[in-house]
Design a binder for these strands. Structure first.
Length: 669
DNA sequence: TGGGGTGATATTTTT
DNA sequence: TATCACCCCA
């Protein structure tokens, strides 16, 4: 605590009421939260079980947990709830499921599952319709985040399309209920509704909780904000930490205006600003400040640093996107040689995923190791989804979404028409698919052969459900999968043996993880499955730091991270700011995105842009991003702006590289 | 069931 | 232009 700066210390010690900590990039916000948790426990007599700390990612929660544990020496942190918003909601729902009308082992549908459900609804109830599933999903998510019921949504619909979306919304909610399932948004929404409708439960929770801490407050949506308000009640003992300049998820319901709302809702709120930056050198910070000054602010702040000045920010301009990639890679190699450092100190950041392609190619040409963050995540791999679906159906027989996924995986000769007949039957009987599979009346609708298959499947599920204990071992589950011949199926259905091996490995990883979670905590299998739905990329932390690889990721993915040297590529109009954002009038968010990218850099920052880019198969001219002109000219050092051709540019780079290699090869130094 | 042809679609995606 | 979901047919 003694090493905190005055603003940080004030944020930690202020416990008399609601507090909002405006924490600029690199100002030590995680530290403030962890120190405050420790302070509340050790100095204020608050028990760990009376504290709630929420983050947005599992990674952040994990990090915070371990930092608090080391502050408290582990002893006093038992029962401390540091989790994501969604896990918090899940815990609440698990405890109060009966009041909400959910069965004990309700399932969680991820976005993909939910989309599948929507598709089913559309096909079944709305015939062939041109509505885009993603649009419906986005609309429903928006309504849930804004606490709007299907009825409200319908009455507020402005046109045919919105009305359709709202109607599907109401069907969607009904289906979820029937499946004894919830989606991600429900994990926040249902607790809010529960607390709003049941004063007794609300009081119970308000009495239990003495302080709530929220990280990345700028990313909360209205629903989450309401949850915080409900949990803290009139005492309003909370600490919100965030940075309105780093709000980059508005398109997903995050509301930066939750900042201004706060002052209206809590006039006495204490606002503390953390303005000292411990990450970047002066040159980078100054430029970032200049850029973000173009955005309106509710709370003015000015980041400063006592670090050294650092080098000027460079701007490399090339002819095409291919040249840009080559230039970045050559520059990186040169830089690395000169500074005798490692690859993992470098990050190449971009606005959209497709920009990684040419860079990856250039990196491969030079045999430089790199890690591309993003792409398909662990839990959206098909083999993992299959296994999860089996476990879900076994613990929650009403989970029709899971049933549909695995009814014919591995192949059981149960085709679409059989499934359709089965669904119709189940619907007419008002039961779930698994139960319907076992009913006698089914023989009226299905042919003998199909009937046998379906019955075989359902019996197997029931049988396995009875056999599997509440806390099975990895070996138990593996035995189950082997009984299914699942691994054989994987082998037969993979593009090549290597892919099959990888898939196998993923399943093994999953089983090991489940076993570990079952042992670590006093959790049942269904608890663990629910938690797994909220988890992602478990092995990301460890790999990222240990391996010596150049980091490639989108600006969104870079939030919260820092790197010694950053390349921010594609600084062009239409790309950053993205073309869609110009007419959607979300330039401010694009500016924040650029700001986030810039402030990731500790020691050096390099912008790149090219004057031509292949887009949809056509060469197109590109203009420098307006954001470059928002930074004072003297902060930037342009290279290649003059008529130097790219060929010369690359040649120069290669020449220089060869020179350095020779120099090092000879062994001076 | 799997392969090939077709046509729509190209921003970001914490949970 | 590259990709991918989808549909139809053998």
């Amino acid at each position: 605590m003694s090493t905190l700066n005055p603003a940080q210390a004030a944020a930690v010690r202020y416990i008399d009421g609601p507090a909002l900590v405006i924490a600029g990039a690199g100002s030590g916000k995680t530290r403030v939260i962890t120190e405050k948790i420790a302070y509340l426990i050790t100095e204020c007599g608050i028990k760990p079980t009376q504290l709630i700390a929420v983050t947005f990612t599992n990674k952040a929660a994990q990090e915070m947990k371990s930092r608090v544990a080391s502050l408290l020496k582990g002893k006093q942190s038992r029962g401390l709830a540091i989790s994501t918003f969604h896990t918090l909601g899940l815990n609440l729902l698990r405890q109060e499921h009966t009041t909400v009308g959910l069965g004990k082992n309700f399932s969680i549908l991820d976005q993909e599952d939910a989309k599948g459900l929507l598709q089913q609804i559309m096909q079944r109830d709305y015939g062939d319709n041109t509505a885009v599933l993603e649009d419906i999903q986005r609309a429903i998510s928006y309504w849930k985040n804004e606490l709007l019921s299907p009825e409200k949504a319908q009455s507020q619909a402005k046109d045919e399309k919105e009305l359709l979306h709202a109607t599907v919304y109401s069907a969607y909610v009904r289906y979820l209920r029937a499946y004894n399932a919830v989606d991600f948004d429900d994990l926040i929404l249902l607790p809010v509704q529960l607390l709003q409708q049941h004063p007794v439960i609300l009081e119970k929770w308000q009495n239990k909780i003495r302080h709530v801490l929220v990280d990345e407050y700028q990313d909360t949506n209205y629903c989450q904000y309401t949850l915080i308000r409900l949990l803290t009640g009139v005492r309003a003992a909370f600490t919100l930490v965030g940075d309105d300049d780093q709000s980059i998820y508005a398109w997903r319901g995050a509301r930066a205006d939750n900042f201004s709302r706060l002052q209206a809702d809590y006039p006495i709120i204490k606002v503390i600003k953390l303005e000292q930056n411990y990450r970047s050198c002066q040159s980078i910070l100054r430029a970032a400040n200049q850029l973000i000054a173009n955005n309106p602010h509710v709370f003015e702040k000015k980041l400063w640093s006592d670090k050294n000045h650092g080098n000027k920010i460079r701007v490399l301009q090339t002819k095409t996107d291919i040249d840009e990639a080559k230039r970045v890679v050559l520059d990186l190699i040169n830089h690395r040689f000169r500074h005798q450092t490692t690859y993992n100190n470098y990050a190449i950041l971009f606005r959209s995923n497709h920009q990684s392609r040419p860079v990856e190619q250039a990196l491969r040409e030079h045999a430089i190791p790199y890690q591309l963050t993003g792409g398909t995540s662990f839990f959206s791999r098909s083999e993992i989804k299959d296994c999860m679906a089996y476990l879900r159906l076994i613990t929650n027989p009403e989970d029709d979404a899971a049933f549909l996924r695995i009814i014919n995986t591995p192949r059981r000769e149960i085709g679409p028409s059989t499934v359709e007949k089965l669904s119709d039957y189940a619907r007419s009987r008002g039961v779930n698919l698994l139960a319907a599979s076992n009913e006698l009346g089914l023989s009226q609708v299905l042919a003998d052969r199909a009937l046998k298959q379906v019955q075989g499947f359902s019996r197997w599920i029931y049988h396995t459900a009875a056999q599997l204990t509440e806390r099975p071992t990895a070996a138990d589950i593996k035995a189950m999968l082997e009984e299914l011949d699942y691994f054989t199926w994987l082998l037969d259905n993979s593009a090549n043996p290597k892919a099959a091996e990888r898939a196998n490995k993923h399943v093994e990883d999953l089983l090991a993880l489940i076993e570990k979670m079952l042992q670590d905590e006093e959790k049942t299998l269904s608890d663990v499955i629910a938690r797994l739905a909220l988890l992602d990329l478990i092995d990301r932390n460890s790999k990222e730091q240990e391996r010596d690889e150049v980091q490639l990721m989108t600006l969104h993915a870079a939030k919260g991270l820092e790197f010694e040297h950053v390349y921010l590529i594609g600084m062009e109009e239409e790309l950053l700011p993205h073309r869609n954002s110009v007419e959607a009038e979300t330039i401010e968010e694009e500016r924040r995105l650029t700001y986030v990218g810039m402030t990731r850099a500790k020691r050096s920052l390099t912008f790149t842009l090219s004057s031509m880019r292949k887009r949809y198969g056509e060469q197109q001219d590109c203009l420098p991003s307006r954001f470059l002109s928002e930074i004072a000219a003297e902060e930037l050092e342009w290279e290649g702006k003059s008529a130097v051709s790219m060929e010369e540019n690359v040649a120069k780079g290669e020449e220089h590289l060869a020179f350095l290699q020779k120099l090092l090869g000879v062994g001076s130094e």
